[in-house]
Design a protein around this nucleic acid. Structure first.
Lengths: 159, 159
DNA sequence: CTCGATGCAAAATTTTTGCAGTCCC
DNA sequence: GGGACTGCAAAAATTTTGCATCGAG
């Protein structure tokens, strides 16, 4: 099986996941939702609602901003995307990847690029911190704001 | 020295810090800024811009929303407050406490209360994570969303 | 006096919502 | 065909900004 077919298979699995979630909740697979899902699957990195709107409109012009905003929670409930809070004024989203464990977010202060890196230890640590307060951890995130050592030669594309 | 006098001293130190920062940057210590600083010093827990506006207006009615918003960055630059991002739609702020090291934030999902707890280990860990990407950590935060074990008896006041 | 600071209200930004019409199952 | 879904535009919610005026140093 070559790369291309493997991609297609992953994509199909996600589509099935979405279809499943929708029907199990009495929701319908509309053309707009199809377009939005396709747009999500084409994302290679973090994206905003506005990014998604642009890509989805490219697939189906009839997709509106309101529908994108109404679809984001559905996509999250379907475990297809997750919200990534990076402390800015708007929200970022990322495609879920079940192969990965806890992800720490590193944000380059210069170019704004968001990177995620495995930090499996954090999963335990966050739980322990909550425990100390007699609470049960639900979710946790580690955000690191950082700079390339030599800002003049920041390797990441400017946002 | 009793508690009351100690408080006064802390407060004076902060006021001096603010005065210093202002004059060093050609900024003026206006009545509005005085009121806002006093309001900040009376905060016992995390607060929003709107909270601060309400408290400051209580001290000096002439304080406007715009001035509060314009003061927040100045207070941060003066290292009197810091921004606490808890993944909501608005920003929280907290009074800086130099005696404390790295603080992890634990947010009760039920009542919305924000707690902070020392997590000195994180300081090192975040730096290591950035290092792994060849970057230099500037700041970092650990956020844990949690729930009281028995949600029916959540001990924290509802927001 | 001078230039930084202020209040006000309008604007900007991101996200949500009411409504009348549309289309999936 | 009925109820879920949609686009649109208006509304919300939070923060920023332009401008005429005020006031600290």
């Amino acid at each position: 099986m070559d790369e291309k077919n493997k991609q297609t298979t992953d994509s199909d699995t996600t589509t099935e996941l979405f279809r499943e979630h929708l029907s199990q909740h009495g929701m319908r697979l509309t053309n707009q939702r199809k377009a939005i899902l396709q747009a999500v699957l084409r994302q290679t990195q973090h994206f905003t609602a506005e990014d998604l709107l642009a890509k989805a409109k490219h697939i189906d012009v009839s997709v509106s901003r309101a529908t994108v905003y109404r679809s984001l929670p559905v996509l999250m409930q379907s475990k297809i995307i997750r919200e990534v809070d990076v402390g800015r004024d708007f929200k970022y989203y990322a495609v879920e990847d079940k192969r990965k464990s806890f992800q720490a977010q590193v944000i380059c202060r210069k170019c704004g690029k968001i990177m995620e890196i495995d930090a499996p230890f954090m999963d335990w640590y966050g739980k322990a911190v909550a425990e100390k307060l007699g609470m049960e951890a639900v979710s946790q995130r580690l955000q690191v704001e950082a700079m390339c050592r030599d800002p003049e030669h920041c390797v990441f594309a400017r946002k």
